[in-house]
C-alpha cells in the first residue's frame, strides 16, 4: 500500500492513477458517512419515502463513481500491482 520512497516525482499519468487509487480508498468511507446521515434526521411522519429516495440516490451515486474508478483502475492493477 505504501508508495515507493525512492520516487519523488511521477509523470502526469502515473500521478493521475495514484490519485485514482486514493479516491478508491476514500469512496467506502464517504459511503459510510452518506449512509449514516438519514439516521440523524428528525423522526416523524412521511420520512420513510424521503429516506427511500435518499438511499437509492446515494446507492446510485456510489455505483456511478465506482464504475468510473474501476475503469481507470482496472488496468493499473495489472501493471503495477499497487
Amino acid at each position: 500500500m505504501k508508495e515507493p520512497s525512492n520516487t519523488v516525482f511521477l509523470e502526469r499519468k502515473s500521478y493521475r492513477k495514484r490519485r485514482m487509487m486514493d479516491a478508491a480508498r476514500v469512496l467506502p468511507l464517504v459511503g459510510v458517512v452518506l449512509v449514516l446521515i438519514p439516521l440523524f434526521w428528525s423522526r416523524g411522519d412521511g420520512g420513510t419515502s424521503a429516506a427511500l429516495i435518499y438511499y437509492f440516490g446515494v446507492w446510485l451515486l456510489l455505483i456511478v463513481v465506482a464504475a468510473v474508478l474501476s475503469r481507470r483502475l482496472g488496468d493499473v492493477d495489472a501493471e503495477t500491482g499497487d
Binding site: 487509487m21 478508491a24 480508498r25 469512496l27 467506502p28 468511507l29 459511503g31 459510510v32 449512509v35 438511499y55 446507492w59 456510489l62 455505483i63 463513481v65 465506482a66 474508478l69 474501476s70 483502475l73
Partner: peptide
C-alpha cells in the same frame, strides 16, 4: 448496504 460498501471499497 453493508456488502455495497465493502465491494465499492474493493481497492482497500
Amino acid at each position: 448496504l453493508g456488502p455495497t460498501l465493502v465491494v465499492v471499497g474493493w481497492w482497500l
